[in-house]
Structure formats: C-alpha cells, structure tokens
Nucleic acid binder design. Sequence first.
DNA 1: TCTGGGGTCCTAGGACCC
DNA 2: TCTGGGGTCCTAGGACCC
Length: 426
Amino acid sequence: MNAIVDCNSFYCSCERVFKPELWNKPVVVLSNNDGCIVSRSDEAKKIGVRMAGPYFQAKHVIEKNNVKVFSSNYHLYGDMSMRVMDTLRELVGKENVEVYSVDEAFLNLDKIPFEQLEKFANELKETVEMWTGISVSVGVAPTKVLAKIANHIAKKDKAKTNCVTLLITEEQQRTALQQTRVNEIWGVGGAYANKLINWGITSAWDLRNMPDEWAHTNMGGVVGVRLVKELMGIPSIIMKKELETKKMIATTRMFGRPVTELFELKEAIATYTSRAAEKLRRQHSAANTISVFIVPKEESHSADFHHGASISSHANLESATSFTNELIKPAVRLLDDIFENGRAYKKAGVMLSGLVPDRSIQGNFFSDGSKGVHRFLMSAVDNVNFSMRDDVVKFGASGVNKDWKMRQELRSERYSTRWEELFEVS
DNA sequence: TCTGGGGTCCTAGGACCC
DNA sequence: TCTGGGGTCCTAGGACCC
C-alpha cells in the first residue's frame, strides 16, 4: 500500500505556527516578486480567492475581507518542511519515505497489516500535527495515482473525513473514481482534460475503463498506459530513491522592475550563476553546458504569457566545472551575445546541464594546477553562506545594491533559521 | 501599473554511421 | 541502370507536477 501525506495550505500553515492569532482567519501567501497567490487558507478559499491568480486581481477581495497577506519566506518553509519529513521518517522508517515536493511525501506502507491501515493513517496525521504544528491530509491506496485521489477526497470535506481517506477496497475505489472528474486526476493536465471531455470521457472511472492501446495512442504513449493501470490499482509508477541527483539545474527570476542596463543584467546573471553553482556543488555535480536567457518586457495580455519569447544562448564548456568563477565568465559572455541595447527586460535565468559527478571531471591538459585552491575556496564560501542561510560572501560581479531584485514587501520573520529573528515569548 | 520558479519524463525527427 | 535497412545520439518541444 501507498500513502501520500500532503500538508494543508502549507505556506499558510507555516505562517500560522508562529502567529496563532491567525488561526481561523483568512491568510494567503504570494509567490516570488509578490506576483501570484500560491497558498490559501480554507477561510481565504471560501471567500473566493483564486489559486495561482495574480495578486493584483485579487487585491480587492483581499482588502475587503481583511485577508492577511505574506510574501513567501522560503527560509521558514524549507525548515518546517524538514521537520515534517523527519517526523514521517521517524514513523515509517526513512527507506519508506519518498519526498515528492516541499509539502508532500509518498510513504510505502507494505509492512502495515491491512486491518490496521486506517488506525495507522490517523496516527500519522495526529503525530505530524503534534510534533510540527502543521496539519496534513493522508490518502491511502494501492497505487500512487489512487492515493492522490484519496488525498484529494480527504481534503475536499475535512469535517467528514478528518483529513484521512482510504481507497483500499474495490468498492471504495469505484465510488471514488466515479465521483472524480478527469481534470482532478494526478497526471491529467489542462490539455488532456480538454481532449478527454471532448471524447466524452468525463470521470476517472471512464478513463480507468479505457483499453491500453487507446491510452497509448491518445495519452502520450507509455505515460498514458501507466496512468490507466494506476487507476485500475496496478502499481506502475515506482517509488524513487531519495537523494537522486538532478539532471538540470536552473535559477531564474523576474525582476522587481524592468531592467534596461547591461551592467544590471550582468549583476543579475552573475548572482543567478552563483546560486546555480551552489546547487550544483551541493549535489556534488559539475556542469558541461551553461545557458543564459533573458525575457524582454512585452505588452502581452494573452493567457499564455508564461511562454513569452525568451532569448537564449548556450555554451559547451571546455571541461565540466562547478566553480562559480569558471561559470560566471561564460555566462556573462553569453549575455553579451544576446543583449540588445534599448530594450527593457523583465526576467533572466541561468541553466546548467550536462551534469556529471564531481569526481569524474575530465582532466584538462591546460589547467594550471590551481583546482585544489579553487575547491577549497568554494567549499569555504558555501559553508559560510549555508550556516547563515544567506549570501554573506559573494563574487563582486553579483553587485551590491541589486536594485533589480524582486519585490518581497510582506515577508514574515525567519523564526527558525536566523538568531536575530527568533520567535519571542513574553 | 501589476501574472513564480523550479523540475521531470517522453516522443518525434534529424544527423550520422555502417 | 540503380539508391536499403537498421541502429544510435542529440535536440526541441510538449505535457505534466507542485
């Protein structure tokens, strides 16, 4: 059996742990740059604040209803996430936990006897809440896709389910699938949902009963076949081992205001490159390819503004590296290639790919033997920055003023990761 | 005025090889 | 005169997730 444990309104819950006066009050958390709404408390949902909607559009409703608004505080959420995941590891053993995102984890419950599953699921929920202050929903089923559906049902009617739902008998599964719309299935996004509905396939139960060959031709090949199997209760998406290394690393940001000056873009690219290189070193990888992109500010009102025309260029490095200084140089060169004077830009990013393990970096005939020094310097910089959880030490190219930085006007204190912002009890 | 920031997997098609 | 049949690797792009 599989379980998925999903934190309820995670970012909002994190804020509430340290602000009990917000209990039962409407709360929302914004994305970077205070752009979109990415987390809503139940009270905010009831008022009609839309998920992922632009903040400025919801501002009216928010002010009228006295909704408390926060900018995202990733120091806090990251730390709270670790506490939740550690609790789960403690309860089911760390080899049975697959962290799926900052607020969700799949658990392997094969060792729990069938008749004890319900009690166990309830205990999981109670314990996480007691130890971390974060409330969670639990879905239990033979496959991941069914567990996700169970979780969805648990969340929909919290009073009835107490945030725990099991789909472990065929009867339970049939009823649940019949009342689940195709667009609510994990793995069916907007594009497929539209197609399915046009074909008259509207419930998860309808989709479950489609033949393999049909799924193969119409739903993206093997992906579709796996999805239908999972709906039938046949496990087809396997648990991933933890700590798998990433195959691509990206750091991209919107700017707080349109940027027109090359020197500012250079600062931004240098900053993002430093951040990406840090992520690279954390997983002991080195990159063979670096690419840089910038997005011009355009008056685009279309629904798919996300796919705005970005201008990019990439370079293959002479040899794989994870050293910030060796990455900043080509990054800035690439920027020079694509920058156009007189244009305003709203976003930029750096991507590292062709990742290989740090150890297997190919020797370079022409290297001057200073690699050891670089490695030492990099790890010293990482240690200082990690212990402070901030960029205390950085490269000059990153700039100091960073006038272009994103807006984050409503951030709460970093209670659990900064001494000077520690939670106080008086 | 004002719309995030990461990632993954899969497929199709072109280049190239023998 | 006549122009195969495999295979691999890479890239771009589509779809999805939170």
